[in-house]
Amino acid sequence: MKKFAFLLAASCLFFTCIDPVTLDIDTEQRSLVVDGVLTDSLGEQAVKISRSAIIGYGNDNILTPVPGCTVKVLDDAGNTFAFEEKGPGLYVRTMKGEPGRAYHVEISTPDGKHLRSEPSVLKTPLPIGDISTEVVEQEFVNSAGNIDSEQRLLLKMGLSVADLAEKPFLRWRADGTYEFQESTLAARVCYVGSRPDLNNIKIFDTNALANGELFDEPFLDMLLDYRFSRKYCFHVLQYAISEEEFKYWESINDVVNIDGSFFDPPPGTVRGNIFNVDDPDEVVAGYFSVAGVSYERRFVTPDSLGLGFIEPKCGGFRPGRVRPPECNDCTVLGASSLDKPDYWQ
């Protein structure tokens, strides 16, 4: 429904305005939130349990972790996998799920609530197809009111499901790591993690494909800036999710894109697959995702994008010039390290 936001802008010509307003919404209701993922990839599977953040109270927009829960994952073969609390509200276990097997989570909170997810069959992962890139120019109005343009990078996916009897529901995610060079004389290089797909929900129902072939479907759109001046590595994840989870993300996409337009669906709380066993009407937010995952790395350089040069953040060393702190010490950047990852090419 995002496109309807644009409709609105056009419908109102140039007289429409959007500005903050105070509403009389006075409530202290918080809901339990479960955010968990179990995949077929061996590693630390995690379930986060928290309480939702109340809206409209200063900076209280932070989830409150719920420590002291008992968390276990059960499969349809009768196996139980107990999770351990690694940090406040974070419960983990190193394991992997098996495709074709159904899993669900059971949680007991310290205040005596019993939560449980609907069992979900772990789908066989689908190999990642062709990842391609495209650089596009996009016009925008700058702060001076003039039309300017910027370069953006699109990451696109191509794949075939023509041979599959059961057409999968897919969800794509991408994390990134980039090289960042200081402008000091030593000019050390950091490897910095980034979250290029924050709030980018990219799901795809391959049942809608005319002949089972998908070409160049954009799944990530980001500004081409200094992060691409040396080398950028995308970590692309493709989850084969259940139809229920697909619908969940579809609804989440609707609610996070509500923008007040005529075309907005009436908002409602998206119910995931977790419920309170003793009180099914209680709103428990979040999802326990059971998915087959495939992973691929993709390196991007100015050369590979056909651009030659992208301006770095820290230009050459110039005495007397005030430099951003990370140009003196790149380790001040969040998720930054001087150690070169072993996969780095």
């Binding site: 109340i54 809206i55 995610r173 709030n199 980018n200 989440i252 609610v255 996070v256």
Partner: peptide, 12 residues
């Protein structure tokens, strides 16, 4: 009345 984060999506 309240909001939460799930996966890479926040302010749900």
């Amino acid at each position: 009345i309240s909001s939460y984060t799930n996966s890479n999506v926040w302010a749900i």
